[in-house]
Design a protein around this nucleic acid. Structure first.
Length: 212
DNA sequence: TCACTGATCGTCT
DNA sequence: GACGATCAGTGAG
C-alpha cells in the first residue's frame, strides 16, 4: 500500500540511514528538537522492526514549569538528568506512555518529547499493536506512537545511540521544512513556542490550525 | 474540525 | 489526595 507523506528533500548524495552518534546530537535542547525533525526512529521490539520519521517534537527546558524536571531530580525523571541521547519514557494519565530524547549536559534536566511520527517501514507491526486504528492515527500523538511501536516503561533510560539498542536514532539525510508553535496539552508555560514540526506533514498531532 | 468529557493510575506534595 | 507533556468517544457546526 502507498502511504501519503510529506515531500522529503534528500541531499545531493543520498546514503543509507546511518546510526546517529551521540557526539553529533546538539547539546542545546531547542537545537536538538529541530535536529530531530526528519530523523528516523528504528524500533526492534517484540521481534518486530518498525521505522518511522520524526515529524513533531516539543522542547522541555531548565526553569520550565511545564517540565517534569522543574522541581529537580526524582525517581521518575532521573533519566532527564543523565547524558543526552537516551530515552526518558514515562506513563501519563495512567493510560499512555510518552517518549522523550534526553538532551543537555549530565546534571541538567532537559529533554525533547517526541509527539508524532510518519510511518516508513514495518507498518504491519504497528497495525497489529493497534487493531482497528486508522493508519493516519497510528503515530499521531505521544501516547499513540508509543503504543504502535511497543514502547513502554521497560525502555526508560535506554541509549538511543547504542548498537543493538531496541530503540535507536538514524539519519538518512532527509531535510524537512520546520514550523514552530506553542506546545500542546499544557496548563503551565502555555505561551512558549517550543513545539517544532515538519511543515505540511499529514502525520502531526493537535489541531490542524496549530500547524498551519 | 473542534469542543467537551470520562477513564485511569503513577507520581508527587 | 490532587494532578497530569493523553486518548477515545460523542455531538455540534
Amino acid at each position: 500500500m502507498i502511504l501519503p507523506h510529506v515531500p522529503v528533500r534528500k541531499s545531493s548524495s543520498p546514503s543509507r540511514p546511518k546510526r546517529i552518534a551521540r557526539a553529533t546530537l546538539p547539546v542545546d535542547t531547542i537545537e536538538l528538537s529541530r535536529f530531530l525533525i526528519g530523523k528516523l526512529l528504528v524500533a526492534r521490539i517484540g521481534g518486530a522492526r518498525s521505522v518511522a520519521r520524526i515529524v513533531e517534537v516539543e522542547a522541555y527546558l531548565t526553569g520550565d514549569p511545564a517540565s517534569h524536571a522543574f522541581r529537580g531530580p526524582t525517581k521518575r525523571n532521573k533519566v532527564m538528568f543523565g547524558p543526552r541521547g537516551h530515552a526518558y519514557v514515562y506513563r501519563i494519565y495512567g493510560t499512555s506512555w510518552c517518549l522523550n530524547v534526553t538532551s543537555a549536559k549530565p546534571g541538567v534536566g532537559e529533554a525533547a518529547l517526541v509527539r508524532a511520527l510518519e510511518p516508513v517501514a514495518g507498518i504491519e507491526a504497528m497495525r497489529a499493536r493497534r487493531p482497528g486504528i486508522a493508519d493516519r492515527d497510528l503515530l499521531r500523538g505521544p501516547g499513540r506512537l508509543c503504543a504502535a511501536l511497543g514502547i513502554d516503561g521497560s525502555l526508560d533510560g535506554i541509549d538511543l545511540c547504542a548498537a543493538r539498542s531496541p530503540l535507536a536514532l538514524f539519519d538518512d539525510r532527509a531535510t524537512l521544512p520546520i514550523g514552530v508553535s506553542t506546545r500542546i496539552g499544557l496548563t503551565k508555560a502555555v505561551e512558549r513556542k517550543l513545539r517544532f514540526y515538519a511543515r505540511g506533514s499529514k502525520w502531526l498531532s493537535g489541531r490542524v490550525s496549530l500547524s498551519s
